[in-house]
């Protein structure tokens, strides 16, 4: 990774510290600065409230010319998070053709928070969950809470 990229990540970390979005904690290891660990509380106004989610943000070598890669380490019932051991997300900013180099990680973190409050079923990675979200909101929220209880306490 280039010196420029490292400098940029350091700077972004500084900005995140100064202005961390509410309900988030970032663990940063200076020896391995391309992998951030984020602890995220389920937003109060969402069915994920009460859950604590662990995320990983990995910066590719080409950062910031390629987007960071986000994965949920805690299982989560969500149309935009893959229901496998990767827990990956690939929508909006996180897609290579949408990401622009001036975009910042903090925008990614905000996007994740927004998506927990309001999932995007039209760009889903889990079509069955997206369908349930659209057709049967009650069942969806029940499943979300069920998974929060099981995996995110």
């Amino acid at each position: 990774m280039s010196a420029g990229a490292k400098k940029r990540i350091m700077r972004e970390y500084g900005e995140c510290m100064a202005d961390t979005p509410p309900g988030m904690k970032i663990n940063f290891d200076e020896r391995n600065m391309t992998k951030w660990e984020v602890l995220l509380d389920g937003p109060d106004q969402s069915p994920y409230a009460g859950g604590h989610f662990k995320l990983e943000i990995n910066f590719p070598n080409e950062y910031p010319f390629k987007p960071p890669v986000v994965s949920f380490k805690t299982k989560i019932y969500h149309p935009n998070v893959s229901n496998d051991d990767k827990g990956s997300m690939c929508l909006g900013l996180l897609r290579a053709d949408e990401w622009k180099p001036p975009n910042k990680v903090v925008a990614v973190l905000r996007l994740i928070q927004t998506l927990m409050i309001e999932p995007n079923p039209d760009d889903a990675i889990e079509p069955s969950i997206a369908n349930e979200y659209k057709e049967n909101r009650k069942e969806f929220e029940k499943n979300v809470k069920d998974w929060v209880k099981r995996y995110a306490k």
């Binding site: 420029g4 990229a5 400098k7 940029r8 700077r11 910031p64 180099p101 001036p102």
Partner: peptide, 13 residues
Amino acid sequence: VKVKGFVCDICCE
């Protein structure tokens, strides 16, 4: 061009 007081929004230089 060179611009006075410029900060690059990508690399922060």
